[in-house]
Structures are given as C-alpha cells and as structure tokens.
Design a binder for these strands. Sequence first.
RNA 1: CGGGGCGUGGCUCAGUUUGGUAGAGUACCUGGCUUGGGACCAGGGGGUCGCAGGUUCGAAUCCUGCCGCUCCGACCA
Length: 568
Amino acid sequence: MRLTQLYAPTLRETPADAEVISHQLMLRAGMIRKAAGGVYSYLPLAWRTLRKIETIVREEMDNKGGQELLMPIMQPAELWLETGRWHVYGDEMFRLKDRHQRDFCLGPTHEEMITTLVRADVRSYRQLPLMLYQIQNKYRDEIRPRFGLMRGREFIMKDLYSFDRDEAGLEESYNKMYDAYTRIFSRCGLKFRAVEADAGAIGGSGTHEFMVIADSGEAAIVYCEQCDFAANVEKAELKPIESPEETLLPLELKDTPGAKTIHEITAFLQISREKTIKALAYKTDKGPVLALVRGDHELNDIKLQNQLGCLTLELADEKAVGAEFDSIAGFLGPIGINKDVMIVADTTVMNLFNAVCGANQLDKHWLNVNPNRDFKAAIVADIRLIQESDPCPRCGASLLTARGIEVGQVFKLFTKYSTALKATYLDDNGKEKPMVMGCYGVGVSRTMAAAIEQNYDENGIIWPAAIAPYTIAVIPISHKDAAQMEAAVKIYEELNKNGIETVLDDRNERPGVKFKDADLIGYPLRITVGPKAINENLVEVKVRRNGQVIHYTIEEYLQAVKELLKTL
RNA sequence: CGGGGCGUGGCUCAGUUUGGUAGAGUACCUGGCUUGGGACCAGGGGGUCGCAGGUUCGAAUCCUGCCGCUCCGACCA
C-alpha cells in the first residue's frame, strides 16, 4: 500500500474527548472514528489489525475442534422470555420492535440462540461433544460507555459455546479453551494473567478471566509470585486470620464522643485497627443486613451478595439506619441491633478477642466485645476484599496487586441454559439428559485497544508484529530524488512479494512528517531510504520498539528482517 | 440515574464576564521553495457558533427548555 492511497487520516493533536491512551492513539493514527457514544467505525488500519486478531482466534478455535458459524444479531424476544432473561437483562439490552410490534433485541450474547439452535438438531450422545463459535458484533447498552473501544456499546466478540454429555466432558472442553486463550493472547504479544473470577449474572460457576495487565485496566487483580494463584479481587477467596488468644474481659460501654470512623475510634482509644469491628448496613431484597469485617479490612460486596443469594444490595442511608436498624450511622454494631436485621460476619471477625464495635447509640462503643459470647451471626463466611500483602490462599506468600483489562472469559455454564431451554440428548442407555454447556468469549475489539494500552510510548503505538496493521514502512527521505524513490519502491515491492506487509510513504512530505506518522501508527519496523543508505548501498532498518537502527546489505536484509520480526 | 465539565470550520482552542461585521493555530486546495524528526512564503475554500423558543434595534455572548459529548460513582468482553 502506498500512503498516498491509504485512508488513514492522522491528527496532530489529541481530540479533547479521548481520555485513555488507546482511544487517543487510535483516533490520532486514523484508525477509528466515533459514530455515537460507544459506537465506532473501524478505518482500514484498525480493520486490518482486527482481522489479524480474528485470524489468530479462528486458528486457535479451529485447532481445538471449534466450528465457526454465524447467528443473527437480531434476536426474537421469545428466546429470551423462555430463559427469563428478557426481563432480567434490563436496560443493558438494546430492544426494538418490527412493523408488527413484535419484540426483538440486538444480541448482547448468544446463549439462548445457540442453545435453541442445537436443541433442534442434536438428539444423540453420538453428536456430542460440540463446539460452535462465531465472531460478530455484540450490543450492550452500557450504563456508561467509555475509554473508546475498551467499553463500547457495540463491540466485536468471539463467542464459543461447548456442548458436552457430562461434566467430565465440560471439564475437557473448558481446559481446551483455557489453553486456546492462553495461546491467543500470547500470540497477540500481550502480557496477561488468567485469573479466577466471579461468575456474575450470566450464571454458572467455575470461571477464569484473561486479564491484560495495564494500569488503565478497570479490574483489580491479585496474584502470587510464589505459585500460580491469580484472581480478580471480586472473587479471591481468603483464609480466616486467627487472633492471638486472650482472656475474655467483661463487656464495657464506653463514651466515644464524635468518633465515627475506624480512624477516629482507634485514635481515640489508642488501639490498632485489627481490634475493631467495622459494621456496614445494607438494604437488600432479602431485608436489612449488617455486614461485619475487621476494621483494617474492606468488605467485598460481591462475596456478600453471593452469600445472601440476593439480587439487590445497596448501602443503607442514614435514615434507613435509624428506621430499619435502630441504630445511628457511625456507631453501628451487632449488639442490640434490630432483631429483623440479618448479621453476616467475616470469619476473621469471629476470631477476635476483646474487640471494639459500635453500640448503636450516639457517641458510644462497646469494649471487650467477644463474638459468639456477645453476639451471634446468622452467616459466618469469607466476605472481605483481598488486599495487597494478604497471604496467598494457596501457598501463604504475600500477594501482589495489579490492574487488568479483561479481554476474555471462560465459563462453565453446566445445565443452566440447556435445562431452561430443554436442550437434551439421549445417552447410550436411551436416557434423556440435558447437555452440559460452557461459553467462552474474547473481546476482539477490546483486545486491540488493550494491546495499545500495553504497547505505546510518547510518539505513538508500538504494535506487536503479529497484530500490526502493516509490518514495515519504507520511507524515502526525498520525494524528488529519483534514486531514492527507485530504491524505496524496489524494497517495498520485494518485501510485499515475500509476504511481509509493507507500506511505501510516497507522499511529498518532509521526512519529519513521515517519521512522526510512522511512529504514531506504530509499524514494528521502518526502512529509511536516504543518501546515507543509497551511497553505501545499505538498507537502514529502525526498530520501533527500542529505537535501534541496524544497517544491512541489500543481499542480506530480507532474511535479516524476517528473523528480526520473529522477535517482535 | 446522581454529581462535575464542555458544545464556535476536519482537529486544538480564543471570543461569552461587559450584546455591536465570527477569529487564531493546525489540517485542506493552488503556486513557489524545501527535504535525516511535524519548515517557510504568497494566495484560497470551508463555520445556520449543538437545537428550539424568548429578551433586544441588534445575541456565539443574556434568559428558558431540550439534545449531545465527556469525566467521577453502581455493570462487563
């Protein structure tokens, strides 16, 4: 491709409405343009990269026995009514009506569609296992689209669904996909971690998220350097912490004027945060809940929600604390709380001796609180948020934290959808059984953005070679110098002939402009054709990632470049 | 939905406080000159100032309503 022909309008300045680096650079590099909030056009450069990612995904899916198909984006409401998700999915689903006022949606995901497809045609255990996938646009009317392609309302996703005879089969399919995902993101040149995750609203259990490590990531993860443990903080389980044993002292009511926060109470009483109990009042669809964690810990509301099995969970405001909890904000505690309130305590709290907690009275706290003696909890479980330097639940080493961009997730759905949609088969005894399912997603467009978040510098994008829109830019210094142009064209044509995707910057621009654009677009290699190279009959190659300049002879450069690209 | 910010040529922004002929840089077109890190000179095209009302002799500017974008919080690939 000659750059005089390429449709990639670059911008000198960063558009004001782009916040994250991938969004800024894709706009500046002429890769994407916004059509509406969270909805983008992919210009030729972006589309080339997306197709490369898709190709990698396809190869790995096919290698594991996946078969590609394509289902409709527009889906009838009946499917979703059958599983109940038409109502559960809420405002996040784009809905529309046809001319007969029949309800449809734009597919946010395809469990319903694929399951009804398969149930109609699969009858026998002989037809299983089955792995079907597609790559297409998905639609989710996000509460707040942001970060360019990282959280769009329309995005490209690969979704594969596995159908097995039993859980052993599912396990096998799951492991295949886990392995395929590891290969996909490795091939894309990304630094990532597979982390244990919460199953969320899709349902099912047993799930990993593939996180590209980047500071701009929306998810927080913890990982262990001593073993292979890694988890989303939402999910990460924790072992209870034992407290050093103490003689039980008698309960004592203490005046603590104005001490509402853990910080204030520990300063006032001159005690450590580990000796305090933090109480949080929640309103749920299962009634009021008082959640207890140790003062130096944070509550993980997803764990709490999972323990309660409730659909809604929100912090109670001051009025509700008074009305429904018989307490006062800032002085909440389990002792003497309204009898209708369910107490859920973190296991570590129950191991405390002679602790401090709010007394549900203004400016008063209880001292020498001993759980089980002074209060009982309806549920005792792991409900706290994991923190940096917490011990690894596997090996006990100190954990580290990082931020991640979720680019893929693998899910064990078991029979949630096959049961709801009656997708059954006959086993070898002629007995009807629900298929055991899994689903596996890759955010293709998000992967492109994540690759940029992880590979850029002040001059622009630094593409991993595997997913670069073009691999090499050949830049003649002077547009008017016939010898340079001739040499440049020759190299350009030779590289393309050898299957290396190359552009020729044949624009009548000063070299600085061409260099800036090449850096911005992020070609892994640049070949500069100027007087130096011409006079000495050398090919000058510059590596985008580290700025290294290497000179090769005309005879050796092609092979050398091929080798070099393997390392990029 | 709640809370902040912003809507003026493709892009970045000034002008709004104090109403009076719509501006700059960049990008684009023409010509010249130039060519190893976003040159220079000359000429040129392009904007219903987000939309709709209102106040006024006169509105980008003041008032009202609406729309859109964006950032911070509850969701997720």
